[in-house]
């Protein structure tokens, strides 16, 4: 464990907590893409199946369980408890255009052609693009609440910090995983436009509003 990975994980944890608290406190999931949340639940499910096959550390196990529970909890709040507040008219990104290419890519480019490895690879590819329905929703409505912006910033920062973690591990531990690294770069790049708006607008106390 190095500082970049720890900060990355904490940023990831902060993101999911912000999202759950936002929905719980406001009793509303307005502005949140249920489609992105479905994709994230698929990502955690496919990746953390190794909870039952291999033990890494207490930290690793606890974090995996937290992300799984938080993810399904978010789906429960969005699609059952506060269903009436779900803004489905603006959440129209076709997720099959993300899921199918990720399935095909995972079958073609992986470290090993075994079920768990392919599911892990699929989850890495899918995570890199899972935020697109949410970003599409923000661009469609032209704005995002501040709390939603903080959520997106924390979530984007997490994989960005992992990039530094991978650079560190390459030199310090001779460890690297090209699939994770390339997907992580793609994932972080997708947030760049948002990061720019967040820094120039939200941090200065303004609402995140896209130019007309």
């Amino acid at each position: 464990m190095n500082i970049f990975r720890l900060l990355g994980d904490l940023s990831h944890l902060l993101a999911v907590i912000i999202l759950l608290l936002k929905i719980w406190k406001t009793r509303s999931c307005a502005g949140i893409s249920g489609r992105s949340q479905i994709l994230f639940a698929a990502v955690y499910t496919a990746r953390y199946l190794d909870l039952v096959t291999s033990y890494i550390s207490a930290y690793n196990t606890v974090m995996k369980i937290v992300f799984l529970v938080a993810s399904y909890g978010t789906l429960y709040l969005m699609f059952l408890k506060f269903k009436a507040t779900y803004d489905h008219n603006h959440d129209t990104f076709r997720i099959e255009f993300l899921v199918l290419p990720c399935v095909i890519l995972a079958l073609l480019i992986n470290h090993d052609f075994s079920a768990l490895e392919i599911l892990w690879t699929f989850s890495i590819y899918l995570e890199s693009v899972a935020i697109l329905p949410q970003l599409f929703m923000v661009s469609k409505t032209g704005e995002a609440e501040s709390i939603t912006s903080h959520y997106l910033f924390a979530l984007g920062t997490y994989r960005g910090l992992y990039l530094f973690n991978w650079i560190y591990r390459y030199y310090a531990e001779d460890h690297y995983d090209l699939i994770a690294i390339i997907a992580g770069i793609v994932q972080t790049v997708l947030y760049c436009d948002f990061f720019y708006l967040y820094i120039t607008k939200v941090l200065k106390g303004k609402k995140l509003q896209l130019p007309a």
């Binding site: 690793n60 992300f67 892990w120 690297y176 994770a180």
Partner: peptide, 10 residues
Amino acid sequence: LKPKYLKDEL
């Protein structure tokens, strides 16, 4: 370099 199968990250 070590094998690429190590899955110790989240």
